[in-house]
Amino acid sequence: MIAVLKHELRLYFHSLTAYVFGAFLLVFVGIGAMLYNIQAAVSNFEYVLSFSCLVFVVIVPILTMRVIAEERRQKTDQLLYSLPITTTQVIVGKYLALLAVYLIPLAIICLYPLIFAQFGEVYLPTSYGSILAFFVLGAALIALGVFISSLTENQGFAAGIGVAVILFNYYSVSLAEYVSSTAFGSLVVLCVAVLILAAVINHLTRNENLAYGIGFVLIAGMAVLYFVDSTKFEGLVPDIMTKLSLFERFYAFVNGVFDMTAIVYYLTVILFFLFLSVQSLEKRRYN
């Protein structure tokens, strides 16, 4: 794990990736600090963070696009399989290297509230609470990026999908207002989700009967539930979209609530996507 971590770190700092990532993050936070703290003369640093979390849409895919996709394209992933460490250790090593690259610009950002405190009254608990939440939010998005990178061997494709997914997550709360909140609409969306799940099952197991079986059972179950009690489906899809939003939970910190449930949510998202990345690498052993 340490070997993978060292190798990845050397790779990031010998290429432009780490510098481009750090520069983008610092420029965006710098623009935010100029707009809010200097021009508008607001002493709340957390507003800058809530403004600049949009930058994750661009920089997280830049950072994570090559992490596994490039190994696959260059066929060096075969070396990873033959290493005397487990796939989990490979993924965790790579993820820790990404976190280290992310922490360096964040350490510089940590100085900003202290600098501003020299010139006025900055309430530091909110600032640093928000910076901590900003770190965990970014860490969750990086885990998502690692998973997307493990799905393809084309870097550009990984970056494109990553941008689309993170942008969708960013706007999912505003989009939730326009999504059909009727019971029937929710049923249709869930049926489509089940069909996608069945397609994934078919792709993974190469067994059509299993995919048809599971898909049919799930759809039948939902249909029965719909006819028994259709009020359960009302507003379900907008609800799910709001719950899944990573950014929405971050704004609670900006508003001055250090919400442990949000931290738990971010940690579970990290665990889940790293786990899926391991499964995605393991898939090449059997499929």
Binding site: R206, N207, Q279, E282, R285, Y286, N287
Partner: peptide
């Protein structure tokens, strides 16, 4: 195909279990 079925269903099953555990943790929190 047999390999894919065995590996794929194992992978799916364990993913579902992990997802269920993580959701349970969130609900508990």
């Amino acid at each position: 195909n047999r390999n894919a079925l065995r590996g794929g269903s194992y992978s799916l099953l364990i993913s579902a279990v992990v997802l269920a555990i993580l959701i349970a943790v969130n609900v508990f929190a």
